[in-house]
Amino acid sequence: MALPDMDTSVGHSFGLEVDGIQIKQISEVSGLKMEQDVIELKQNTADGKYVIKKLPGRPKAGEVTFTRGLTSDNSFEKWIKDCHFGKMSDARKGGAVIVYDFEGNPIKRYKLTNAWAKSLEISTLKAGDTSVLTEKLVVTYEQMEAE
């Protein structure tokens, strides 16, 4: 059952899908953003007053960061390796961040077009530390659409 119009979703229930495959154990997604350029049109009106109009410009490409606990799953490493070695036909992927309601039903999809892995960072390795190791994958995309 979808959320009624007056209810909002919470940020703890989400998933990542890349080329139809669910990537598991994502703990954080940051940087989801739709943005476009702003064009300033400077002109004088008929009565000589100076005005500035702001017009919508081209959409901007973006970046999103995915964080998950370090596991034996090597999908992030494989994706970044394809990008580093220039296999862009394999590296550019379609994907989506999916937000779920309390019952596990998808309520919103943020579709990423021509996404590819820009960087992969492993958290700090420190002797005696008991924190969970994580990996952060930064993905750049050409377009994002909300569905």
Rank of each mutant, 00 (worst) to 15 (best):
V18L: 15
V18D: 07
V18Q: 08
V18I: 14
I21Y: 06
Q22S: 07
I23G: 04
K24D: 08
Q25E: 11
S27L: 13
V29H: 06
V29G: 11
S30E: 12
L32F: 03
L32C: 08
L32G: 09
K33F: 11
K33A: 15
E35I: 07
E35V: 09
D37L: 09
L41C: 13
L41N: 15
L41D: 15
L41P: 07
Q43G: 05
N44P: 00
N44A: 14
T45A: 12
T45W: 09
A46Y: 02
A46T: 06
G48N: 09
G48R: 00
G48V: 02
K49V: 10
Y50E: 13
I52P: 01
K53H: 13
K53E: 11
K53T: 10
K54G: 11
K54D: 06
L55G: 12
P56I: 03
G57N: 06
R58S: 15
P59W: 02
P59D: 14
P59E: 14
K60I: 10
A61P: 05
A61I: 00
G62Y: 02
E63G: 03
E63Q: 14
V64I: 10
V64W: 05
F66D: 05
F66N: 10
T67E: 07
G69W: 00
L70F: 03
T71C: 12
N74W: 05
S75L: 13
S75E: 08
F76G: 09
E77A: 08
E77T: 12
K78G: 07
W79F: 06
W79Q: 10
I80A: 04
I80Y: 05
I80W: 00
K81S: 12
K81Q: 11
K81I: 06
D82P: 00
C83N: 03
C83L: 04
H84D: 06
G86I: 02
G86R: 03
G86Y: 00
S89D: 12
S89L: 10
D90R: 12
A91D: 08
R92F: 08
K93V: 12
G95Y: 08
G95E: 12
G95R: 02
A96W: 01
A96N: 00
A96F: 01
A96E: 11
V97E: 05
V97H: 03
V99F: 04
V99N: 04
Y100D: 09
D101P: 00
F102C: 14
F102L: 15
E103M: 04
N105L: 14
N105W: 02
P106K: 10
I107G: 10
I107R: 05
K108T: 14
K108W: 03
K108S: 11
K108A: 13
R109S: 13
K111A: 12
K111F: 04
L112M: 15
L112A: 11
T113I: 12
N114P: 03
A115N: 07
W116F: 13
K118W: 00
K118Q: 11
S119N: 12
S119R: 04
L120Q: 06
L120E: 13
E121S: 15
E121K: 15
I122Y: 03
S123C: 07
S123W: 01
T124K: 02
T124Q: 03
K126G: 09
A127Y: 01
A127H: 02
G128Q: 09
D129T: 01
T130K: 01
T130D: 11
T134F: 04
E135W: 02
K136T: 15
K136I: 04
L137F: 06
L137V: 02
